[in-house]
């Protein structure tokens, strides 16, 4: 393929790291070590992934391997959410449910309606896009719902005291949290093509695909990301809110960590 840069090409591109290193040394930024370490780490990680994908995507390989890969991705993403929002009660199982549900919905549409064929070459990268792009928003929503309901507890209790159900009392805070997690994604969707060329499209064009084909794939990808962000954030947002109330509509006592 005309886009195969080969190992020698990769070596030459590594010279670009040397430019960054040179600038860091020249301006005494003191980031040479981390720069070198991150570049190496990224290369090793991606090569390992490449080897794994090479195995999974090999012709005639059982699709079971792809689904195993997707399952691993869901677990890894959920653990990441948990690590970044550890004080939020029940966030790990919620993230597992949210990522699984979002995959079921989006892959269900894309593969079920045969937008893409069911194949390791579609299942693995699409799942990666779906989970990867909803990760940050999921963390954000989990933390925000928790912090809003904790910090605005007097307001929430005033709502409960007016006879509102736990669900109704939490709703304004859950809604604003989900909105604030979704809006960056919507903004990105708006700016696409004008301000930046997104990854999937850039990759396809570099790999020699017709730009119009690349654009069609990219548009589908953007819609998928929007749907998956909306799904994961609403599941995590509503789920966290639920954990902060008792079944008889009382607010759970939350303690602020001394930090």
């Amino acid at each position: 393929m005309n886009s195969d840069i080969g190992w020698s090409g990769l070596g030459i591109s590594a010279a670009l790291v040397a430019i960054a290193l040179g600038i860091s040394a020249w301006q005494r930024l003191g980031v040479e070590r981390t720069l070198l370490w991150s570049s190496l780490r990224a290369a090793v990680q991606l090569v390992l992934v490449g080897v794994a994908l090479h195995f999974i995507l090999a012709p005639n390989r059982s699709l079971g391997w792809s689904w195993l890969w997707v399952g691993g991705m869901v677990v890894f993403a959920s653990l990441t959410v948990w690590l970044r929002a550890r004080d939020v009660p029940g966030v790990l199982p919620l993230a597992l449910v949210a990522f699984s549900a979002s995959l079921a919905v989006t892959l269900g549409v894309l593969l079920g309606l045969q937008v893409f064929p069911i194949d390791a070459r579609t299942v693995v990268p699409l799942s990666g896009l779906i989970v990867g792009n909803s990760l940050a928003a999921t963390v954000l929503v989990g933390r925000r719902v928790y912090e809003e309901l904790r910090d605005k507890r007097p307001e929430v209790e005033a709502r409960l005291a007016l006879g509102q159900s736990a669900h109704d009392a939490a709703q304004p805070y859950v809604r604003s949290s989900i909105r604030s997690a979704l809006i960056p994604q919507i903004e990105t969707t708006k700016a696409v093509g004008i301000i930046f060329l997104p990854g999937a499209m850039t990759g396809l064009i570099l790999a020699g695909a017709d730009p119009l084909d690349a654009v069609r794939v990219q548009i589908a990808v953007m819609y998928v990301v929007l749907a998956s962000v909306a799904t994961t954030t609403s599941i995590v947002g509503l789920g966290v809110a639920r954990r902060l109330f008792t079944s008889d509509h009382r607010a759970v006592q939350l303690t602020r960590k001394a930090d």
């Binding site: 307001e155 209790e157 005033a158 005291a161 509102q164």
Partner: peptide
């Protein structure tokens, strides 16, 4: 409990305007 809370109104220490 929701009906009870509408029968038994409550005003809190700090004003809690929405």
């Amino acid at each position: 409990v929701l009906a009870l809370r509408r029968r038994v109104g409550m005003v809190f220490q700090q004003p809690t305007p929405f």
